[in-house]
């Protein structure tokens, strides 16, 4: 099968700041691809470039003719001053009510249909956003930190839902996440981003790559590194991977 998206030499800038450079990337049908990277590493920018919200400074983004994108942006300003029901939100700008209700059912949020958008909890809102992304029968879902603001059981449930959607709908999923411990296990492929693609591949390969360690093993990534290393520790316990273990502890301090 041909790739849904082929990115070649992508360069993105904000004013004088180079956010991304030399990014090459292909997204294959029905794969779960996760992008990890520190804050400001260009993860959201990459997604926004694919959606077309930001124009590339250089490079190409080739989209398959069959590509239909469902997009969940990083943040949405839901204000109590705007009286908007979930149904009305899903119908914007011109979707049918029946399609909106069907999408809510797919994410297990049909009970939300009449609720005011501003009254939803973080997890409910993320499900509604996901439902919205499903409306155009996408073959690629772009999710920008879909579990932000959710507690652990909440994000675990959401990841399970996302995996289920891939299985049911056969759509590819490209998501940005901070929760490396969960994401790593649910992904087919991980891309570690820091202005450029540091390393990529199967989750286990990325987790043990020196570039990845360099990013998440120090500074603000310390806490995340701890998570990951504990996870690695569990994973590799049987292999007697002591080095990993010690490494994790060093960074935890």
């Amino acid at each position: 099968m041909s790739a849904l998206i082929s990115i070649d030499g992508l360069r993105m800038t904000y004013g004088r700041d180079v956010v991304l450079s030399g990014v090459n990337l292909k997204v294959q049908p029905a794969e779960i691809l996760t992008i990890v990277g520190p804050n400001g590493s260009g993860k959201s920018t990459l997604l926004r470039a694919i959606v077309g919200a930001e124009k590339p400074k250089a490079g190409r983004i080739e989209r398959s003719p069959e590509l239909r994108i469902g997009y969940v942006p990083q943040k949405m300003a839901v204000d109590t001053r705007l009286p908007l029901s979930v149904l009305r939100f899903l119908r914007l700008p011109n979707h049918s009510s029946s399609a909106a209700v069907a999408a809510l059912k797919q994410v297990g949020a049909e009970a939300m249909v009449k609720r005011a958008l501003a009254d939803l909890s973080g997890g409910q809102l993320q499900r509604v956003m996901l439902a919205r992304a499903l409306l155009g029968a996408p073959n690629l879902l772009l999710l920008d930190e879909p579990t932000q603001g959710l507690d652990q059981p909440g994000s675990a449930a959401l990841y399970k839902l996302i995996e289920g959607l891939r299985d049911d709908l056969g759509c590819a999923i490209m998501m940005v996440s901070h929760e490396l411990h969960v994401v790593m296990s649910a992904s087919d492929r991980v891309i570690c981003l820091n202005g450029h693609v540091c390393c990529e591949g199967h989750p286990d390969v990325v987790a043990s790559a020196p570039e990845y360690r360099a990013l998440f093993g120090s500074g603000t990534g310390g806490a995340l590194a701890l998570y990951r290393h504990e996870h690695t520790h569990h994973h590799h316990d049987h292999d007697g991977d002591d080095h990993d273990h010690v490494h994790g502890h060093t960074h935890a301090e």
């Binding site: 997009y71 914007l92 011109n94």
Partner: peptide, 19 residues
């Protein structure tokens, strides 16, 4: 009307919708 509502909620979402 609908386009502006979508832009109010999220410019990125509006963009993804072709606006």
């Amino acid at each position: 009307w609908s386009a502006w509502l979508l832009v109010v909620l999220s410019p990125d979402l509006a963009r993804a919708q072709g606006l």
